[in-house]
Design a protein around this nucleic acid. Structure first.
Lengths: 256, 256
DNA sequence: TTATCATTGTGTTATGAAGACACAATGATA
DNA sequence: TATCATTGTGTCTTCATAACACAATGATAA
């Protein structure tokens, strides 16, 4: 099936495969070079960036739909994800930009389920940046990481969704294994601290941070030090997942 | 329009008025006689109790839909409500019980949008028990308060939804004006403490509780004492909403 | 009229967590 | 070999929380 046929089929018959009026949007967080990043798609139809998203199959759990979408964009299974909010303003419709997209694709069409209003469920996901291979979808030209502080204007209400996702991530910081999912297996203490500082958007005292983290017992210090760095080489650490999970049960107490 | 016609119209044409595949369920919390209570409907179609719920109109914000549903059940405007989770297991369909309901109502029908799978968005609401006049809907015989500790078996996954609502209410306790919305304008300190104890499901020290609450400055002590009680009469208090809102910004710090 | 008693109202102390802060150790680079 | 940015660690102070006891109140019972 060629591109044009694929598009046409999706617009004409997609509603037989997917639930109507409801979609999923994903905020995929990664951490790289001491910066919090988000994976965005460049939407052909709008010439604008957008959050990766998709629809829920008729017999599919919504969480599974989110997982499927994430797998398609990142190549990863077993992604940590969290439903966080539903976005439902009545004007959430891509009719205008979809019509434009179809026109430029040389497809003409009267009505389509894709022109309807969509209520969207937001999920945020935490991934190991180094393991992701970004893949664009059929509606997009590009799939790239953006620093959380330099996000361009996105389609529809996607900037709002992203903002809300970030707020929710902050609020959930003490109750989910954020570090475990965002960092590679081995990492240094300064890296972990920088992760917390970036998400909380404030600085933390190095000594108090270390004392608190070690106090929870969630870290194992390795003998190995980081190589190829100027100045004193920091030790690598890894998570003791068992103790991490346990500590999270009661909340870990990093205040906003 | 008679009952039978109303039902038939809803099943045949409701999808022209409402979004498909998506519904709203509400957990309406009230506090009375030192007990946390929830408003439930007795579903004619199942002979079982259920959460009040409804659908979203084509051009309606989902929050508005929830407000409309709440107004219909309680008679109240300006209800404090909070979206908390989306429930999306693929087997969320009332086809079976709806078919049974139609049969006993003497209506026969082949297909209907109401037989489809529904993804449901959960909202919890806080109301002043004394102001609510429970009203059943067209599918129900009764609308009554239940003590949170003696909830019967509900239809579908409504027990799970209720459980999750309660968990979320607990987690949000320090960030929303729970007391302000659940208690009448004037209330005593022991009543407020009991509210917190009920929601948190644990006892609190009377002296520490009072010190902490007064420390936030959210209460104004009135000169009036409660009448007609045995033993020492407690003073009434009311909230200083301005300071309450302010205090909530940073969280109020009642730990679970 | 007086005593009883459950309940409200309040103050002190002890404990532990969090915040502020300084200096020695390391190891690549100059 | 000296420099220097960065890592690694300990102490003191401050504040919030938890534990705890006794006096005041006022309806009820004797």
């Amino acid at each position: 099936m060629g591109f044009k046929e694929e598009i046409t089929d999706h617009f004409l018959n997609g509603h037989q495969k997917y639930l109507r009026n409801i979609s999923v949007d994903c905020i995929i967080f990664g951490f790289h070079e001491n910066e919090l990043k988000v994976l965005l798609l460049n939407a052909k139809y709008a010439g604008q960036w957008a959050l990766p998203g998709g629809f829920i199959e008729k017999e599919e759990h919504m969480d599974e739909a989110a997982k499927r979408i994430l797998k398609q964009r990142t190549g990863l299974d077993d992604i940590f994800l969290q439903q966080f909010h539903v976005f439902s303003t009545p004007d959430r419709s891509t009719k205008k930009i979809n019509t434009q997209f179809l026109k430029t694709s040389g497809v003409s069409m009267e009505g389509s389920w894709m022109f309807d209003r969509f209520i969207s469920v937001g999920y945020w996901a935490l991934v190991d940046f180094t393991k992701v291979k970004p893949v664009a979808d059929v509606f997009s030209d590009a799939c790239e990481w953006f620093n959380i502080h330099t996000i361009p204007e996105l389609i529809l209400d996607h900037n709002d969704i992203l903002q809300k996702a970030l707020e929710n991530l902050r609020a959930q910081l003490n109750y989910h294994p954020i570090g475990y999912n965002l960092l590679p297996e081995k990492f240094t203490m300064p890296e972990l601290q920088k992760l917390y500082e970036t998400i909380l958007d404030r600085t933390l005292d190095r000594r108090n941070f270390q004392r608190k983290i070690f106090g929870t017992g969630i870290l194992k210090k390795l003998e190995e030090t980081k190589k190829g760095v100027a100045h004193k080489a920091p030790y690598y650490h890894k998570f003791d997942l068992r103790k991490y999970q346990k500590a999270l049960k009661g909340g870990m107490g990093f205040e906003l």
